[in-house]
């Protein structure tokens, strides 16, 4: 992977990428409110479950397929996996999050001098898929910039985890160093999650996190909220 590709991946996974990642808690705000998550250990265990049963089982394998579809200029496959990802999103808030992030990322790409010339950004079928999930734009950009697939998945995984930990630090609240310790605890296991995700069959893709889905449903009517999901 070239140096340019490495740095472009960093740009895509940075919390400073203006797609509003820090405004979504994916049900964690309700889980904290109701006492399911009280401290740094609870955060670790909550995220560890999602890592195995949601992010590693759904997002990463779908991201890999979107990446291949981008490389092969296969808009049918690209749309199919974007539709599939959205169908797996468990609640109306999680769907809204997916679409909002997808649309925001597309707007970022529209304004980058290199990306603005990509034919995919001019074609309605591609744009529809891009506006359904942030994975679509992420995959397209990684494929276009020749970011190595495994590194793209690792990067996505890290950005998800970092964002969730930032959310937890704000919500519980935790000290900054507690948040860093949670992140550090994950560092030895993340590569294995990516490697496992790269060998999942199409038929075995799919998340199974019922308590997160219920937390996200209940967040829709939570009285006092900081986060949009």
């Amino acid at each position: 992977m070239s140096n340019s590709a490495f740095f472009r991946l960093q740009q895509l996974i940075s919390p400073s990428l203006p797609i509003g990642a820090f405004t979504y808690s994916q049900g964690m705000e309700w889980a904290v409110e109701c006492g399911w998550i009280k401290d740094a250990d609870d955060v670790y265990v909550w995220l560890d479950g999602l890592l195995e049963s949601s992010v590693g089982a759904l997002e990463l394998p779908v991201l890999a397929r979107l990446y291949h579809a981008s490389q092969q200029q296969d808009v049918e496959a690209f749309s199919h996996w974007a539709d599939t990802l959205l169908a797996w999103r468990e609640t109306s808030e999680l769907r809204a999050e997916e679409c909002q992030r997808g649309q925001a990322l597309t707007m970022v790409l529209d304004k980058l001098p290199d990306a603005a010339g990509w034919p995919e950004l001019q074609q309605p079928e591609w744009r529809e898929a891009l506006g359904q999930t942030q994975l679509a734009g992420f995959a397209l950009a990684c494929a276009r910039w020749n970011v190595d697939l495994e590194q793209a998945l690792n990067g996505y995984l890290w950005s998800w985890l970092e964002n969730m930990v930032i959310v937890a630090v704000k919500l519980i609240p935790l000290g900054q160093s507690d948040g860093q310790r949670v992140l550090y605890r994950f560092s030895d296991q993340l590569a294995a999650v990516t490697q496992q995700a790269m060998i999942v069959d199409d038929d075995d893709i799919g998340s199974s996190s019922p308590a997160m889905a219920i937390a996200s449903s209940l967040h829709e009517t939570q009285y006092c909220r900081l986060f949009r999901s």
Binding site: I37, E52, A57, T84, G206, S208, S209, A211
Partner: peptide
Amino acid sequence: GKPVMIERLKVDQPRHLNATSGLR
């Protein structure tokens, strides 16, 4: 012909029973 919602219950490890974001 277009997927609208997909749901899954997957349990193949004892840890899946007590996952706090899973079956609790």
